[in-house]
Design a binder for these strands. Structure first.
Lengths: 146, 146
DNA sequence: CTAAAGCTGCAATTAAGTTGCATTTTATTT
DNA sequence: AAATAAAATGCAACTTAATTGCAGCTTTAG
């Protein structure tokens, strides 16, 4: 289910960083843009197959890596030892994530801006903050409630 | 370098949760208690060899898993896809971590209690908060400064 | 001291991700 | 529009962390 606007958005994002526009990058990025949750490599592979995108596993890995390097997508470490990837319309800005312990889905919490007011011990240089909340997502919560 | 007090501490912690006191669990726990940074399985294996602890890889994995299950140790996901483990005198309480991008070491920031005042979207049930800071540790910072 | 519960070792397996290299595409230059 | 250099892709093989099943051995409660 891809619309013209989305296709254009993916292209725009790739061109924005002077990247080559290839079918695999486009297809991967569109999936990362259209899916609500962050996708693992495996989930991406399945989703790609459904949209008719033909690509080797390795090429998907490389497309994902590239998108992350360029700041177009971001990568979240999952408790099941697999990275998960997500992209949004604007180039990635820092935000927190929520991972469900039941279904392993990762949700981006764009609005969550915790007051991270703290002091690191002397000597530590801070680059990046990773805030991951864990618990039960709405879908799994309602399943268990039955 | 293990002292009597430490040995007793490890035993005490294991007994506290009604666990069997075995040489492997003792050895692993002592290492996790004595080391300043969080140890990966591999680092643990090397450290174990040096202390003369004989154990199969799998047994180390199982001892680590068990310690985490019991809340005696805790597990931090590392950017190199390997878990890292740490234990402290008291049963684990939540705290933040710092991982160095250069040496991959993970440091526990016991004192770091950020004001995590935020609201989750409706329907999400929160169990656990994982806050990982990334950057450069003091040791690597001073190496690069030379 | 002796079972039963539950650890441990060993071998085999899984799963995510990586690497090297030959081939094909992209996008630029003529 | 054709040529070309740079970069992306496919394929096969490999690496590494972690898991599983099962037989045999320890721990500990009684």
């Amino acid at each position: 289910m891809k619309t013209d606007t989305e296709q254009t958005l993916a292209q725009k994002l790739i061109r924005q960083v002077n990247g080559r526009v290839t079918p695999i990058r486009l297809g991967v990025l569109e999936l990362l843009l259209n899916t609500q949750t962050a996708l693992s490599h495996q989930e991406l592979e399945q989703a790609a197959a459904q949209t008719g995108l033909v690509a080797d596993r390795v090429s998907l890995y490389r497309a994902l890596d590239w998108l992350v390097e360029q700041g177009i997508a971001h990568r979240i470490s999952s408790h099941d030892r697999a990275w998960r990837y997500k992209a949004q319309a604007e180039l990635t800005s820092p935000h927190a994530h929520f991972q469900c312990k039941h279904c392993s889905q990762v949700f981006c919490l764009e609005d969550l801006q915790p007051a991270l007011l703290f002091k690191l011990p002397p000597g530590y240089q801070l680059d990046e903050i990773e805030l991951k909340l864990q618990g039960t997502c709405p879908a799994c919560a309602s399943l268990n409630a039955i």
